[in-house]
Design a protein around this nucleic acid. Structure first.
Ligand code: FES
Ligand code: FES
Lengths: 143, 143
DNA sequence: CATAAAAAGGATAAAAATATCTTTTAATCT
DNA sequence: AGATTAAAAGATATTTTTATCCTTTTTATG
């Protein structure tokens, strides 16, 4: 449903939401030790998000990744769609041909409901909602 | 969440539920053309299910795969667990360490609910429930 | 008993996902 | 300007998942 890559990306963004802003950028090096995602791999994912304007980055000294106020308004779904592509979530749970959200199959009745809800959560949850009221990354979990 | 293999397996079993019984066994050859799963691959999956006692099979002429009355009482979850292993479904949605159903993380509140429900559906849906009232495989979908 | 049908099993191949390494580009700071 | 820093980009490697092929074993039937 969600690829590992998407999960990694969300973790990374979560870290950024809690530990960065325009005046305080962070390097991948700082992130990966906390969220336990392979450094180079996380870098790739964040670059991808940056390229799609979901997060921000600048190069060079004092550079790094960060979230602008605007960035924080992006939803989890946007992150997932950049990383996994549009199709992965939308396609039929059972991998049935000609069967999608608009044209649900019989099995859809069984399992599709949960999935639609799941997507709706991703769609309606902004990054800033995630960290609302949280002080630091520790409040989340051992990532 | 569900691997392709699991989906394939479910499709195959669904076919068996609708088209087989102790006195009418079917060959992989008959199944794969309908459910659109590669023949040899489907064979492997059904063999695996057979080995685990989820479905039945006999070799030789007039042999094939089939579902006994007992077989039909198995749940979708059992199929998935044979194919994907116990861990895939149970592990944390976000892939977070030390985080599972018993020890849910903060993100769990967000997305975990849907997943638990999904698992519960798989757990409570027996094969016979799936085909209850259905006449033939056509009623399901273009698999 | 011979034969053919069918699953079972083992080995291999291809593709996709995950991960790492290397080079290039841009920003900052002497 | 030159040195340094850090992301961006590109190339390569590894692992896992998916898929195929080929041989062996089992079993019903003529
Ligand atoms: S559209 Fe097929 S299961 Fe939902
Ligand atoms: S246990 Fe971590 S998200 Fe559910």
């Amino acid at each position: 449903m969600l690829s590992n890559s998407s999960k990694y990306a969300i973790k990374g963004v979560l870290y950024l939401a809690l530990n960065s802003n325009r005046d305080h950028k962070v390097m991948v090096r700082d992130i990966y030790t906390v969220v336990h995602v392979p450094e180079a791999y996380l870098a790739k994912l964040l670059q991808e998000l940056s390229r799609h304007g979901i997060i921000s980055s600048t190069r060079g000294p004092k550079g790094g990744f960060y979230l602008s106020e605007e960035d924080r308004k992006h939803t989890l779904l946007e992150i997932v769609q950049v990383i996994d592509g549009e199709n992965r979530l939308n396609s039929c749970v059972m991998g049935i041909r000609n069967c999608d959200m608009d044209n649900p199959c019989v099995l859809h009745k069984l399992v599709g409901g949960n999935k639609s809800k799941f997507i709706r959560v991703l769609e309606s949850t902004k990054i800033l909602d995630l960290v609302d009221g949280k002080q630091g990354i520790e409040e989340f979990f051992p990532l």
